[in-house]
């Protein structure tokens, strides 16, 4: 689905954020990207949808080479990539519904978006998604009236209504409490399963990464230093990624998943 070849990014400030990164994510795979602050995780996923322009290298989405697209073609390609942000990045002064529908902006014209005249099918899909994440009654609330967990679920709806092939998720839980974090991670996982989406999830919480994904990639100073299953994250590997520390307490038993189901979040799509 996604193929990254020898990706390099050097910021004008001189920071070499990515060095020859090679990565392939097949269809339907949820991949967790871990690494210390400043390792280049955000840069990596931003180079995929070119919110940040890579300095060198190629990125393919399916057969489409994203890195050579013109502005106009890039806009069309971005519709196939949903993005979820750490601080939710909802438009605070718009309603929940407007925020969700803004995920369709790539498909509707300027005047339609000006007058908020989205196609009926888009609106129905928006309601379906809001219902799916348990925010049906919140549709007409303003985004800044919601709690962090609720906002992130709106952010997820906005990404999914694009009907993407790939999700780019930048630290979805960094501003949330542990329980909400798990709920959000579980939700993203379920939704990816339902739609067989590929996803890259940047995450700081190693335990959460182990719980929710089958593949973990470790990035350190712009280079991939680990790529494998969560079980193989040994203290030695973590030291390679993050540096020296006592890791025994951090590494979880991968089996202890699915202990308590949250009723509103995990209810099956109806």
């Amino acid at each position: 689905m996604l193929r990254i070849e020898d990706l390099n990014k050097k910021y004008p400030t001189g920071d070499e954020a990515l060095k020859d990164v090679k990565l392939e994510v097949p269809k339907g795979q949820v991949m967790a990207l871990i690494g210390p602050s400043g390792a280049g995780k955000s840069t990596l996923i931003r180079c995929v949808n070119r919110l940040v322009e890579p300095t060198k290298g190629k990125v393919f989405l399916g057969d489409l080479e994203l890195t050579e697209l013109s502005r106009w073609k890039l806009r069309q390609a971005r519709r196939r990539m949903g993005m979820i942000f750490q601080e939710y990045a909802l438009v605070e002064r718009l309603t929940v519904m407007e925020n969700v529908l803004s995920g369709r902006l790539g498909y509707v014209g300027f005047w339609r978006s000006w007058f908020r005249r989205f196609p009926g099918e888009d609106v129905r899909e928006a309601y379906r998604l809001l219902d799916r994440v348990g925010l049906m009654e919140m549709a007409d609330k303003r985004a800044d009236e919601l709690s962090g967990g609720q906002r992130q679920r709106v952010g997820i709806c906005r990404a999914l209504i694009q009907n993407p092939d790939l999700l780019l998720v930048d630290e979805p839980t960094a501003s949330l409490d542990p329980k909400t974090s798990r709920q959000i991670m579980r939700l993203i996982n379920e939704l990816c399963d339902e739609r067989s989406l590929a996803a890259i999830i940047n995450i700081h919480d190693v335990l959460l990464a182990q719980m929710f994904s089958k593949r973990i990639v470790g990035l350190e100073q712009g280079s991939i230093v680990y790529d494998g299953p969560p079980e193989d994250l040994t203290p030695e590997v973590l030291t390679r990624i993050y540096g020296e520390e006592n890791w025994e307490a951090t590494i979880g038993k991968v089996e202890e998943e699915n202990e308590e189901e949250d009723s509103t979040i995990s209810k099956a799509a109806s």
Partner: peptide, 11 residues
């Protein structure tokens, strides 16, 4: 960030 999020949708 809010503008970037809109940009990322292909707007």
């Amino acid at each position: 960030n809010q503008v970037e999020a809109i940009q990322a949708t292909g707007a």
